[in-house]
Write a protein that binds this DNA or RNA. Structure first.
Lengths: 201, 201, 201, 201
DNA sequence: AATGAATGAGACTTCATTCAT
DNA sequence: TATGAATGAAGTCTCATTCAT
């Protein structure tokens, strides 16, 4: 009881911040980067109008945190790749994972990506995310070469860029059109990777 | 004489509108969909602050015209594919074309694409554009099968979707990072297409 | 008539700006630098709430203009010193002039002077004013030495600083207390100047 | 033991209040009367954001205490005039004292003086301070006449007002411009006083 | 036809103050 | 007693839009 009480202040703050972030993500996905007000966020989260600015300093500050939050969340879901797979199977698994992501967060992610083109604050976070993704694909390609399930004569970085381009294109589609058959395109991409990266027979 | 004058007036209007549109496109690419004012547009084009509203009625009206203009322009530049190539070579050429596009228009395109997620007016235009692109890729795959430079056992629509996903992912990168080596990723993608779509040796 | 019409736009603007400035001066004198809002200014001048920001960019911008306006006004009234007097008589006349200034503008001036201590934008304008005043006093002292109505062995800049200090202190009193007998203190100061600067008999 | 604890509590409170006041004075001097927040004060003093309101009730309450504190402090420093001097030498010493005061407290004093023009609460305190200063100057002039080191035919109150005007003007300069040569102007003023007030020879 | 003055709604942001812990 | 979470009022500033010229 005492413990709970002592924790309460910090918890209240933590909870309030999280709820504001979550509602912001929804609103960005529904209304776009500029299509909602800080007051909308507060109301949706059930707080007073001034709280978002109070916590995050500014609308841009709030959205920078949203980017972190979304990309972290996103990273976490990607990182669940089983540690058993390496090389080509791991890449195939990665494609599967991307292809299954959907819903509001993707729309938000797409919108924030576009905003990052014109807001230097967001751009840095996005760059970091992109580089991490590229590096982990490259690592997997090299692991595959090592393990012998990927051919040796591949331009590792160019190929990683190609794979990541496809995945980003997929996300753009998924955000745009719910009827788009991600599974089919993903499956086709996996076949294509096998034909290009596999050892032949 | 009167006719000439009337023409001159119409021409001047036409020129003014075009300049306003062109400057708006630049501004969207630099500042985002909502990151500029009508006065900015007017100033950049060298006219008085009131002219954009005078011509286009409202900011929304101006942006609607911008979307038309950009997608038309975009289409025109892609459509320049030589009529001589068909099937796999045509697809390879398409990749080359995309991979060479760069600069401000891409940024504007990316930004408009993101806005389309939350503006139904834009969404329709963008859907049309996407479908046209997909259809033309599918047509080329079928032509390749017909001509014998693409293997028969391909899921045409899934493969077209995959190709288009890659191209869109490429654009996203190109807009975001000027240092991204589009040529290398494009070349790699062409190799990959050959391995997957080609007839073997 | 045509001329009048052509002028009207510019005149409207000019008049609006002037009225906003004049009302701001009143408000600063009555309520202090932070004791009124831009909306108050607009309302007092009979315009819409947004106009002050529209014209002057920001509250600080408006107040910077007020400083210019007040000091200019103030300078003009000082500059009316007859060109016939030079040296000691001119200085005596200057004291008389200062000593007669009163009313709202002085309060405003005092308040802006204090704000200049913490707002670099205002500080520059104030520095300029101070230097101009000091220089013109120094000039007059030198003229007096030349003409022979001021003794030669005076530290010109130190004495100018002393005179100006007195004048500024006078203004502070005048702003603070309407009952303060400026005339008496001014007369006394003139006597004192004569005793110090004059040639003896 | 209980007593000691109680004292310790009271002392801690006293110390905290003093530190808050001192930091507020600095902040007024740096940022102006309204240019800082209660949180700024708390942070500068090393306490929690809520403490200033907790102790002083409101921002206005805090500032009222600041005025008391500053004027008291100010008085104390002026009052250190040695009791040995009287008449003209005492006045000369007073000028020296004023001329040596500098730094943050002067800025704060100037800012409070300006605020007094628009806050009746402050105005009374400032009036009292001014009157005390004037009276003590007048007293000294009379003492000088009595002692024979000041000439008899002086308008005592007008002359006191003149001296005080100079001193206040000096303070305004000192607050505004650190490079202003107070010593030189003060020395010049003392010479001037001698020429005017002294007995001649 | 074109300009630009003026409006006014609405967003962001700040921060003294209250109150639960 | 002291903290700091949360409120909410109020102000600044922006800008699409209207309208007189």
């Amino acid at each position: 009881m005492a413990v709970k009480k002592r924790r309460t202040q910090a918890e209240r703050r933590e909870e309030a911040e999280t709820r504001l972030l979550v509602e912001t993500i929804k609103l960005v996905g529904e209304c776009g980067y500029d299509g909602f007000t800080l007051a909308d966020v507060a109301e949706a989260a059930g707080y007073s109008r001034g709280l978002p600015a109070h916590y995050f300093g500014s609308k841009e500050g709030l959205l920078a945190r949203v980017v972190e939050y979304v990309t972290q969340d996103y990273h976490d879901s990607i990182a669940k790749n089983p540690e058993i797979l390496h090389g080509l199977p791991a890449l195939e698994n990665l494609v599967h994972t991307y292809v299954r992501v959907n819903g509001a967060p993707i729309r938000t992610f797409q919108i924030l990506t576009a905003q990052a083109l014109v807001r230097s604050g967001l751009k840095m976070t996005m760059s970091r995310l992109t580089n991490q993704s590229l590096k982990s694909i490259e690592k997997e390609i090299r692991a595959g070469i090592e393990l012998g399930n990927i051919r040796k004569d591949i331009d590792v970085s160019a190929h990683a860029a190609m794979i990541y381009s496809f995945l980003r294109g997929q996300l753009a589609f998924a955000a745009f059109d719910r009827d788009f058959d991600q599974e089919a395109a993903g499956k086709e991409f996996i076949e294509t990777m096998r034909a290009r990266l596999g050892l032949g027979n």
